[in-house]
Amino acid sequence: MDYQAVLIGCSAGGVNALQIIFQSFLEDFPIPIIVVSHQNIHGKSFLADVLNYSSTLDVCECEEKTVPMANHIYTAPANYHLLIENNGSFSLNIDPKVSFCRPSIDVTFETAAEYYGQALLAVILTGANSDGSNGVRAVKAFGGTVIAQEPLTAEVATMPESAIQTGCVDYIYPLNDIAGKILELINKV
C-alpha cells in the first residue's frame, strides 16, 4: 500500500511518546505526519517547538487552507478542531468539544479517513480517555491501517485500550517498536 499520511492521536503522556517515535525518523520521511494531541492550555502552545527539539523533521502547527507536505510534522493547534477537507487541505473550527476534547482526535481521524481512505496510516498512543476510538472505526471502515500502542507500555493505558476494544486495530506494538513498524509499512526499511 502506498500510504499518503501518518496520523497520530495521543493525550496524557503523549509528548514523551511522540519524542521517542520521532527520533527514529529522518529528513527524507516520504509523507506528512499529522499529530492531534490534547493540550490543556488557554494561550500560546509550545507543542510544535518542543517536538522540534527531538526531531530532524520540521515540526509546525497546522495552518488552515494549507496542504500537508512530505517530511513535515504538523500539530493540531490547542483549542481548535482539526479537519481534513475534501481537497486534502487543513481546516480548523471551534465547534463544541467532542467527548470533552478540542482538538478531538475523532474529528481529525474521521475527516482524514474520508479523504485518504486506504492511504491512511493511523496511530493511537497513550492517553487518559477514549477519544480516538470512533476515529479508529472510521479509518478502518475506509480501508486505512491502524496501529495502537501496547497499553502496558503507555503512560496512561485508557486511550489505546479503548481503541483496541473497537476491534479495528491492525497492529499492537510497544512504544519502542512503533517507529520501526511505521517505517516498515511505508516501505522505508
Binding site: L83, I84, E85, N86, N93, D95, V107, T111
Partner: peptide
C-alpha cells in the same frame, strides 16, 4: 463554507 466542518454540522 468549508465543506468538512459544514458536513459535520
Amino acid at each position: 463554507y468549508n465543506f468538512a466542518s459544514f458536513k459535520r454540522r
